[in-house]
Every structure is written in structure tokens, then in C-alpha cells.
Design a protein around this nucleic acid. Structure first.
Lengths: 212, 212, 212, 212
DNA sequence: CATGAATGAGTGTTCATTCAT
DNA sequence: CATGAATGAACACTCATTCAT
């Protein structure tokens, strides 16, 4: 029978889970509606808290946005990279695997909405763009270059410009991802191609184009 | 006969020039800051008129946006197609030409910012997204398919899935364009590849991959 | 061959008619939509001139309104009063005639919209209200009192308070007029009574109530 | 135990009192200046809150207006009718009571300004006019007809057209009310008659005119 | 005189942010 | 910690008024 019993506010459920729930709600809404069109009240409501509570954890809408990006952007890539390192087959299969796995692990997930979001808002938040470039794009390109180099070393691929070719690998993936979060939901599904089919086809085209 | 006489503007009211000036200012600002972050008063100021004048020519901010899209996107796409029809060389050269010309005529211009904008705002203005899909993307894909079909008919290309391959042609272009208006301005130039070099390289890769 | 011949603006059709046309258009629109909801551009358009021309004749929207009131309010009453003076029958018939004629000559006309307008806007333009009171209401009441006095003098009517009774005569007329310009157009016609029938019935009721 | 303790307001947020305070402020201002000329910021200021707070309780200016009408017009009309039902005297007294009570309970109050406002703005808000007709005018006329019918049934009144006569009862009341909120405040008081005196006199005139 | 393009102050409405409870 | 009522700056849009032609 201490004082706390008299305190009518007992509903201290999952206090430390709050920021996470807010970030998740914010991710959904930012991806769905963009930064400007998302109201913080909505974010709070989706997380089951009040508007005031959101500002307890994030000092402003902008900081919330940055936190969402930081939280969702990094480290998705590393696991895939490690698995790829263990791969023992030919570089052509490795390239296709790299593309498909990246799509499955990131491109097809909700988190990929962040990439689209970053591109949409890059001009308003250049620091985020740079952060993304350094943490995600550059390592990704390096990974691709590594696979290409291996193919060249093994005599499987022609000696090509690694950087340019890496972009030919990555560009369709990023295009696919951007499209999925912008045009695709607005257009009749018949217009849209199946991502995995396209990736496989594109990988095949690349491998043929790269073959010695 | 002083310099001022050569200036055709002075203070005269010129109804006919206004919409164009406003559209140009709106293009710059929408591309630069996005739809929501652009204030109509800014657009008016950039065009050298007052807020009220803008509403004399465009009934709302949204209609101004649509006008910008109509003015800058549709028009540019058709001319290139006509020139391509007159091309007589092999399909491989035709494909490279198509890609390079599209980039020079549209991708590299200010107007291409509109495409990026449409993708960014697609969820807020689904009608525009659909308009873009129908007026720009679909015709573009059809053009590419036509070139591919010609290459196949002439025995230059393998018989491939036209739709999937067309996306392999277009995706890097759209990626390049999106990138140019989002990440590129925020990142050290060394990170960014040269568009035309990349396009040529990608075209070469595709042609090799398509060759019989 | 003076300078005026060189003036290319010859279309001086009905120059002096302009203010009248503007006043008429303004009357229609003010009555129909109220002062605030009427746009000067509409008034000008209805008069077949440009917005600028309106301000050539009336220095402001407010002055236009005042001019409309001044133009339409006075002098309608005097003719009826003179005809009434020549009437020779009993006071009861005279009273009914007064009421019916006022309705026919003013209440049923477009000009009566001004009375409704004055009441609606009285608080915003007190000077107009006073003007109306002095030029229209007071003379009208005096006329009614005169008829009542004659009836009393001739032994037709009981000796009643002239002022109070005059209001019993006038109130239903003003009510009818107000109603016609406000509620009546918005409600199913079945709800509305026929003005002349009502006036006749009301006059009969009054005469019976006044009879000795 | 100083005076401030007795003040229940201080600075505490009190959600429940706000709509009422806003409605009262809106009533005052709408009646005073009309719908268009009243700025929402003024209403808020009169209620002691900011503009934003008003929109917390009423989604738009129009809805605020409708709420004012609902709050001040409908409610007041019903109570009087119930009291009248308990009246046991002759129909002539009942008629006078009906008129006087209506005036005391509604016509003489601030709320009656709403009726005048509805008439002023009827053309701009036809739905409100119809609402007023159905909820206030029609029931009021029915009440009067009921009294008249009772008088006829009891042999007190001649058999007259109920609808026309009901208008003779109501018209002067509505006139009085309209007048009070338009001309009266603008004109020297000597010109204006005393409402209750007039109502009594008019009731007497009607009863005499209706008597068998 | 007449025009109508241009203006800019003014208004309704939204929404990120604050803070008393 | 959490709430949600309150705020006020910001913005799209209107319209009476001006003035160069």
C-alpha cells in the first residue's frame, strides 16, 4: 500500500517500445504519402499514442524523419554480402543471385520505400542523401564490382569498366524499386511487369553481354 | 536609340507572355523543392508578377502543376520519335541512338525534373501518375519494342521477350534521370558517372546480350 | 478636322446611360445575393462594361450600393399618395386600397428588394437605414394615419391609437415583402400564401377590428 | 480563500465550456455584422481563444453558423408551446398570450437576431432557410392555427381561413423582430413603438376582428 | 472615356509545436 | 511520463481597387 498504488496511471505498458512503434508508423506513412503530406498526428495515432507523446521522443517532424531513415537504411545489406561471400559457383550465377537476393531482402520489402522516399526528398534533406549514398549505394556498388572482378579474373567476363557495368546491374533494381513505390500503385496492374522475372531476364542479358 | 529602346519589356502589360513565364518559374521551383514545398507566391515572384496574377492564369496550384507537366513532358517526347522513324542503319545503332537522343532531348534537360517530381508525388496525385504512364511511359516502351522487333526481324537480335527487354533499355535511363534530380546534386561529383558514357556502355552491353 | 477626329474611340454609344445600367445591374445582384456576396465584376458584366468602367462612375463598391438605394427608394410612394387623396369612398375601402396599391406598386416589384436589402445591411450602413426611415417609412406611416383619422372622423372607425394601428397595417406588408425576398424563393411554393389574398383578408380583419 | 479561488476559470483548459463560449460569441457577431462580415478570428477572440481553437470545435465557418442556428432557434421555440397547451382560458386570451410569450421568450432576446440573419442570408444558404421554415415557421403557424381553431370551435371566433389568419397573427411579430435587428438601432428611439404595447394592441384588434 | 491586366491586403483553414494538467 | 487542448505562423485563394495603354 504505497503511494504508487494510489497513482491512477498504471498503464505503463511497453514504455521503451514507444519509439520503435512510432518509427514504424512513421515509416509506413512517410513512404505512403511523402514527408509533407504526412501529419504527425496521424503518425502518433497509428502508433497508438497522442501527438504530444511523439514530441517527447522526437524533437520535431524533421528529426523523426531522419530517425526513420537512419533506422531503416543500414545493415540490411551486410547479411546478404556475407552469404554471397560463401557462394562458390560461377560469377554469372553469382551476379543473378546478388540481384535476386537484393530484391527479395530489400527491394520487395516495405523498407525499400525508404529509398524511394530519400530520392523524393533528397533536395530538401541533402544530408540524408549523402548518408544514403555512403551507407548504402557505395557499398552496394563495391559488392557488384567485386562480383564482376571475380568473373573477369576467372575468364568468365570480358574485361569491362567495373564502375559503368556495376551501374548497369544496379540501375534496373533501383528503377524497379522506385517504380514500385510511385507509379505502380496508380496504374493498372497489366502495365507492370513481374519484378523477379524482369530481374532474371535482365541478369541473363547482362551475362550474355559480358561473356567473353 | 538608347539601350532601353531595345528592351521590349519595360512596364507594358503583356498577357500572352505571362503563362509561359509562370510555367517556367513553376517548373524551376517544383523541380527544385517539390510540389508541397513550393509556394505559389514564390512562383509568381520568380515570374516577376504578384500572387494574384498567377491566379489570373491558373485557377489553382494543382492546375498550375498539371499545366507544367503538360507543357514539359508530353511535347518533348514526340519529336524524337519522328526523327527515329527516319533512321536507316542497323537496329543496334538505332537502339543506341534512341537511348542517347532521349537523354539529350529530355533526360539531360530541366524538364526531366518533372518526371522525377511525378514519381515523388505520384501517391498524392494518382491521376497525374496515370496520365504520365499513358502519355509518356507506354509510348516510350512501344517505341523501344518497335526497334527491338526490327532487330529481331532483320536477324540482328535474338528473339527475346519484347516487354522485358524494353524495360532493360528504359530502366537505366529513368534511373539516371531520377538520380540526376535527387542524389546527384547532393553527392561529391566523383561518385557520379557520366550519363552519356554510361548510356553508350549500357547500350553496348545490351546489344552484345541481344546479338544472335 | 480637329484633334477629336483622330481619336479612334468613336463607340460612344449611350455614354450617359451607363450609370443607369450599372445601377440596374447592381440592384438585381445586390437584392439577389446581398452586399458582400455581390462582386463588382459581376455587376459590370451584367451592365455590359468592364470592371474598370464601373469605378469610373462610382468611386467604390460602397458608394455604388448607396447610389442603388438612393435611386430606388424614394418617390415611388408619392404617386400612390396623390391617387389616394382623390379617393372618395369610405375609409375601410380606402384602407384596403392603400394596402393593395402599395403592394402592387412597390411590394410586388423588383424595387422592393431594396427594402429587404436595407434591412439586411442596416447594421453595416446605419446612415442608409435612417435615410430609408425618413424618406419611406415615416411618410408611409403618416399616410396610413391619415386614412385612419379620416375613418375615425367619419365615425367609421373606433377612436384608436393611430400610431399603433398604423403599424398593424404596415407590418404585414413589410413582412410579406421581406419574406418574398428571403424565405419564399427557398421554400416549396405550397408553403407560401398568395400576397393579394392575404392583404385583402388582413384588411378585412383590421376593418372589422376597427369598426365602431 | 481569496477572490481568485472563486474564479473557476483561471488558465485551466476546459474543453466542455469552449463550444458554448464560441457559439455565444458567434451569435453576437453574426447578428451584429452578418455572416460574411464576421471574421472567424474575431469570433475566437471574443470567446477568448485563438483562431485555431475555433476550428478544433467547428470544422468550418459555415458549420459554426449552422451550429449557432441550431443552438438558438429550434430549442427556444418548443418550450413555449408546451406551456400554452396547459392554458385553460378563452381563445382570445390564449392568442394574446401566445403572441406576448413568443415575444418575451424569443423575439425580445438576442437569439432572435438569428431569425433576422437567416432572412438576410437566405439566398446564400438556402438549406438553412428551408431548415428554418420547417423547424420554426411551420410549427409556429400550426400552433397559431390550433388556437384559432379552438376559438372557432368554442364559438368565440368567426369561422375564418386558418392559414391566412395565422399569418395575420405572425406577420407583425416577425416584422417586429426584423425591425428590432435592423432599423430600430439606427433610428431615433422616438420613431419606434414599444413592442409589447404594440403586440397587445394588435392582439386586441385581431380578436375584435375575429369575434362573432 | 474605356479597358482589363495587375495588384496586394485580407480571410478561411491547416498543422507542427507547446504546455498546463 | 502522457495527454490533448491550445496556439499561431503559414499558405492557398479572393476580390475591390488601380493604372498603363
Amino acid at each position: 500500500m504505497d503511494a504508487t498504488d494510489l497513482n491512477p496511471h498504471k498503464r505503463e505498458r511497453r514504455k521503451e517500445a514507444r519509439p520503435g512503434e512510432l518509427l514504424e508508423a512513421a515509416l509506413d506513412l512517410f513512404v505512403d504519402k511523402g514527408f509533407a503530406a504526412t501529419r504527425v498526428e496521424e503518425v502518433a495515432a497509428h502508433a497508438g499514442v497522442s501527438k504530444g507523446t511523439l514530441f517527447l521522443y522526437f524533437p520535431s517532424k524533421l528529426e523523426l524523419f531522419k530517425a526513420v531513415v537512419r533506422e531503416n537504411v543500414v545493415r540490411q545489406q551486410t547479411e546478404g554480402a556475407q552469404e554471397l561471400a560463401r557462394f562458390e559457383g560461377p560469377a554469372s550465377a553469382m551476379l543473378a543471385l546478388l540481384m535476386l537476393e537484393w530484391w527479395r531482402r530489400y527491394g520487395a520489402t516495405k523498407a525499400s520505400g525508404i529509398s524511394k522516399l530519400i530520392m523524393s526528398e533528397a533536395h530538401n534533406f541533402p544530408e540524408l542523401a549523402q548518408f544514403y549514398q555512403e551507407e548504402v549505394v557505395s557499398p552496394g556498388l563495391a559488392l557488384v564490382r567485386m562480383v564482376l572482378q571475380r568473373g573477369i579474373d576467372q575468364g568468365e567476363f570480358r574485361p569491362v569498366d567495373l564502375d559503368l557495368t556495376a551501374h548497369s546491374v544496379i540501375a534496373p533494381l533501383l528503377f524497379l524499386m522506385t517504380w514500385r513505390h510511385s507509379m505502380a500503385p496508380c496504374c493498372p496492374s497489366s502495365q507492370n511487369i513481374d519484378p523477379e522475372t524482369f530481374i532474371r531476364h535482365h541478369a541473363d542479358l547482362l551475362v550474355r553481354g559480358l561473356s567473353t
